[in-house]
C-alpha cells in the first residue's frame, strides 16, 4: 500500500492511471477516530496487478476529486461526502446517494450515534435482577454513548 500526503492524492492516482492501472476498483473511507483514512484500490486488467493508495485527512477533511482521472470515482466521492463528512474539492457530483435529507451527522463516523440504537429499547437492558436483589450493574448497548442512556430504572414495556 502506497501512503501519500493528501496534497499528492490526485497526482498519485493520475500516475497510477498512466502506469496502466485502468480500473478503479473502489475508494473506501475509514474512521480512525483521530483521522479519516481514504484508500483507493486500482487494478490493471492486462496483468491483473493491484495497487492500493492511501492518504489521511487530519483536521481538515478535504480531498481533491479524482473524477477527471477515473470517472468511476464519482460514486465513492459521493459516499465519502455523505457518510464521512469529507469535502470534495474540484468539480464533482454533489447529489446525495442514500440520504433523503441533510439532517444528522455523517452516519459512518464512529462519533455519530444512530438514533435507532437510542430509541429502540435494548433487550440486553432487561434483567431478572430488576428486583434489585442481585444488584447487577445496568449495561448499555454497543454504539450508544453514556450520556445517551435514558434510564428510568423501570421496564421498557
Amino acid at each position: 500500500m502506497k501512503q501519500v500526503p493528501v496534497e499528492a492524492w490526485a497526482a498519485e492516482l493520475a500516475a497510477c492511471r498512466d502506469a496502466g492501472y485502468d480500473v478503479l476498483d473502489m475508494i473506501a473511507g475509514v474512521d480512525r477516530s483521530e483521522w479519516i483514512e481514504v484508500i483507493a484500490s486500482v487494478m490493471r486488467t492486462s496483468d491483473a496487478a493491484c495497487e492500493l493508495v492511501a492518504t489521511r485527512l487530519d483536521s481538515d477533511h478535504v480531498i481533491a476529486s479524482i473524477t477527471d482521472v477515473y470517472a468511476g470515482a464519482s460514486w465513492y466521492e459521493r459516499e465519502l461526502a455523505e457518510m464521512f463528512g469529507v469535502r470534495i474539492a474540484g468539480a464533482h457530483d454533489e447529489r446525495p446517494l442514500l440520504r433523503r435529507t441533510d439532517e444528522g451527522a455523517p452516519i459512518l463516523l464512529k462519533s455519530t450515534v444512530l438514533g435507532a440504537r437510542v430509541l429502540t429499547p435494548w433487550p440486553g437492558d432487561a434483567d431478572a435482577s430488576d428486583d434489585a436483589k442481585a444488584n447487577r450493574r445496568r449495561q448499555r448497548a454497543v454504539g450508544v454513548a453514556e450520556d445517551w442512556l435514558v434510564s428510568d430504572g423501570g421496564s421498557h414495556e
Binding site: R100, L114, A116, R117
Partner: peptide, 8 residues
C-alpha cells in the same frame, strides 16, 4: 436485518 439501525 443487519442494517436495522441505519437511518437510510
Amino acid at each position: 436485518g443487519p442494517y436495522w439501525d441505519a437511518p437510510t
